[in-house]
Design a protein around this nucleic acid. Structure first.
Length: 478
RNA sequence: GCGGGGAUAGCUCAGCGGUAGAGCGUCACCUUCCCAAGGUGAGGGCCGCGGGUUCGAAUCCCGUUCCCCGCUCCA
């Protein structure tokens, strides 16, 4: 099944869904652009998420925070410290160590062997290395001169020493006088706006803040098409609540989030929950929604019970009160947070994988994207059966009417069969054809993408017909 | 980042020292009253990029960028 991903990459390129970034210059690793069809799919996914999260929950409000934030935010969140260390890899074991700690441990073991002078010399070198212009090279030299071996493998097979900066840094201000970071997650924009949103939206706890936006991470390994990219988009919601109520909220959002994916037409048997074995420092519970991608079960969306860690951190670092006063209970507390965080690009990839189908109609193979009609880039296509007898004009009229409701493609080129196949590959669920009978009684044929069957419908009812047929669509046509 | 494989037309690929090919797709015209392969024609590639070897490089060598497969964290 690994070639399914190859097929999807080809189709995505050919049909204008997803292109490699800066392709004409040789491309940028792990960054992708969404083409004319891809942007429609992406917008539809975002729209459905916003509908489900913000409009259908009276206790959730939206937010659109900036990508650049005060650098102190990332100190408070832990991102700055946790991901800025000199690291070295042992090629034998594949394990990664902090280069400076490796040297410290080496010195300590020398000392415990009674070689105090040697230990002191190494420690002196380490101190010098830390002050060096290129500390990483200096660390590397020490490790080599001292022949420090891999603690797990006992091997002497090191990579170079490198700093792993998770965050992209940039310069803020025309004089480039201070460093800012492109956010590695959208969540912090929500946390720092907790009080603003809560008071202005006149929300009481529990309530949530939802946001869709870009985030950036210098991933060490970035691969598998748009699954793991360095610039990506998240759909996140942080739900603030009274400590003690997190378990209920966690369960409630678990159910809602899984349902959302199923309602998008994703096959339920290819979705599952996966609980984390190890929890992050900020979480007391963490479970992922995984999808069975061609390359295996992979994380799509994370649910985390984050306690009051983030708000407490921001209260400490900013000196501003981040707690909430409950007017009924007459008590003040720092809210706990339950987070739902979905990867938009991963959702797109999942939808493409789930929708990609090769089947046979009357002996001919076809490729079809069986996307949920409400997600498909084009909801409908309009064709004149032949390019004469007034059919193109009539078809254009219908096209104009339908464009008031959704994105529509008009096509009169090639044979009918070719037009249907083109639309199958784009995932267009409905193809409307103006034929001889249309000119007589005003009815058109509506051809179903999944079954290829046709219904004859009065032209003025086509929009309603499409709305009805779109609602409650399932991949099996049930 | 490490190891392995690859990069030739929009897509899938052939060519592997002697001046660039196929299928599909795209475009134009014709045909066609409904499921890609009816006709005619057209456009499209300094063979990823840079350097070297050679009389001559898509083809051999080196570097680099990008892609794919394994090893690891996350949305």
């Amino acid at each position: 099944m690994p070639d399914l991903l190859d097929k999807i990459v080809s189709l995505a390129k050919q049909r204008g869904l997803i292109f490699q970034s800066s392709e004409i210059y040789g491309g940028m690793a792990a960054i992708y652009d969404y083409g004319p069809l891809g942007v429609e799919l992406k917008r539809n996914v975002k729209e459905r998420w916003w509908q489900a999260m913000v409009y259908q929950n009276d206790d959730v409000v939206g937010l659109d925070a900036a990508i650049m934030m005060h650098p102190e935010v990332w100190k408070a969140s832990g991102h700055l410290d946790a991901f800025n260390d000199p690291m070295i890899d042992d090629r034998q074991s594949g394990h990664r160590y902090r280069a400076d700690e490796l040297i410290e441990e080496h010195a300590a073991s020398l000392r415990s062997d009674g070689e105090d002078e040697e230990a002191a010399r190494v420690e002196e070198q380490l101190a010098e290395a830390r002050r060096a212009d290129d500390p990483n090279e200096a660390f590397y030299d020490i490790i080599h001169e001292e022949e420090i071996r891999g603690p797990d493998s006992g091997a002497f097979d090191w990579t170079a020493v490198r700093n792993f900066n998770l965050m992209f840094a940039s310069n803020y201000g025309p004089a480039s006088d201070s460093t800012v970071y492109l956010r590695p997650e959208t969540a912090q924009g929500i946390f720092v706006n907790f009080r603003n949103a809560q008071e202005t939206a006149r929300q009481h706890l529990p309530f949530g803040i939802a946001q869709i936006g870009k985030a950036f991470r210098n991933e060490i390994v970035a691969r598998q098409f748009v699954f793991r990219t360095r610039e990506f988009e998240q759909m996140e919601m942080q739900y603030f609540l009274k400590p003690g109520e997190e378990e209920d909220a966690f369960q409630r959002w678990k159910e809602k989030r899984m349902n959302w994916h199923v309602e998008n037409g994703v096959r339920p048997e290819r979705l599952r929950w996966h609980a984390h074995d190890q929890l992050s420092h900020y979480a007391v519970a963490a479970e992922d929604i995984q999808y069975q991608f061609p390359m295996g079960w992979k994380e799509l969306e994370g649910l985390h019970s984050r306690t009051d860690f983030d708000l407490e951190q921001h209260e400490e670092h900013s000196g501003k009160k981040m707690s909430y006063y409950d007017p009924w209970e007459e008590e003040r507390y720092t809210p706990y947070v339950v987070e739902t965080s979905a990867g938009l690009d991963r959702t797109i990839l999942m939808l493409l994988c789930d929708a990609y189908t090769e089947d046979e109609i009357s002996g001919d193979e076809r490729t079809v994207l069986q996307l949920h009609p409400e997600l498909a880039p084009y909801r409908a296509a309009v064709f004149p059966l032949v390019k004469k007898e007034g059919m193109p004009e009539r078809a254009h009229e219908i096209e104009r009417d339908l464009r008031q409701h959704f994105n529509v493609m008009y096509d009169e080129r090639g044979s009918m069969g070719k037009r249907y196949r083109r639309m199958d590959e784009a995932g267009t669920p409905f193809c409307i054809t103006v034929d001889g009978q249309t000119m007589e009684d005003g009815t058109v044929t509506v051809r179903d993408r999944d079954t290829t069957e046709q219904d004859r419908v009065p032209a003025e009812n086509v929009a309603t017909y499409i709305f009805d047929a779109s609602r409650g669509w399932t991949p099996d046509g049930a």
